[in-house]
């Protein structure tokens, strides 16, 4: 059990009175990049929120490092850096101030050099770092949120539509960053509806449809998952 960083075990979750996840099971190994693919309302974000202990399972379990997420949410969340969809940090603070505040919220302290290094890593222009984020583009905001996730130095990253709103170059940079993180031992669970992007970085892809996991695609050794096969399954043209 301990070798899996994240496990969904027959996980069923209700949202707004409706079953948003139905009997979903999958595991994410430590150091793996696992992408959950699906259309709107497929249950992707619900899965992430279940691992964060923000949603209580109706049945089954969402486990973080072998322990049910809702059993000790503080301990579970300490292991996770979460990047929400459309990460809106505080617009009245600068990137550096936002990062310092959120790190302090997590009980962490990082010096200015470390914060600058993280912002450098996500390629945020130095001139923008001290400006209020209200002037940032969506891509710039996303970069700051990614830098925050990196600075958390948590072993697990949960990313909700991380490339949404990024330009193609920023997406390539982001994918490279994710691969780099996976190589250094981080576990990444990202949810997306970007088939191409998921195939670029994920070693495995789970396909969600209407709250059910309808298929899992594995990357061949040393290669990438076949985009066409995933796309066909995503579009419902073939069985997953």
């Amino acid at each position: 059990m301990r070798e899996f960083a994240l496990s969904a075990d027959r996980l069923s979750v209700k949202r707004g009175g409706l079953l948003a996840l139905r009997d979903v099971s999958f595991d994410v190994r430590a150091g793996e990049v696992f992408a959950l693919l699906g259309g709107n309302g497929a249950g992707k974000s619900t899965t992430l929120l279940s691992f964060l202990g923000l949603l209580k399972p109706e049945a089954g379990e969402a486990r973080v490092l072998g322990r049910p997420a809702h059993e000790d949410v503080t301990a579970s969340r300490r292991q996770i850096a979460y990047l929400p969809e459309a990460a809106t940090l505080y617009p009245h603070l600068s990137a550096e101030e936002n990062i310092a505040y959120f790190l302090s919220l997590a009980g962490l302290r990082r010096d200015k050099t470390a914060i600058s290094a993280a912002l450098e890593r996500v390629a945020l222009q130095p001139a923008a770092r001290t400006q209020r984020m209200e002037r940032y583009s969506k891509g710039m905001r996303q970069k700051v949120a990614i830098a925050l996730a990196l600075l958390r130095e948590a072993p697990i990253l949960l990313l909700d539509e991380p490339t949404s709103g990024l330009d193609p170059i920023a997406i390539d940079d982001f994918n490279a960053l994710i691969e780099d993180l996976a190589r250094s031992g981080s576990t990444v669970l990202m949810v997306t509806h970007d088939v191409y992007g998921a195939c670029q970085v994920a070693s495995r892809i789970g396909l969600l449809r209407a709250g059910e996991l309808v298929g899992v695609f594995d990357a061949p050794v040393g290669g990438r998952i076949d985009t066409d096969a995933v796309h066909a399954a995503f579009a419902g043209r073939t069985a997953a």
């Binding site: 923000l54 503080t74 969340r77 979460y82 919220l105 958390r152």
Partner: peptide, 18 residues
């Protein structure tokens, strides 16, 4: 409404700390 709620809770560890 600003989309920060879950991030704040996930970062703080528990809502009681925020």
């Amino acid at each position: 409404a600003a989309g920060r709620h879950d991030l704040l809770i996930a970062t703080a560890g528990q809502s009681g700390r925020l």
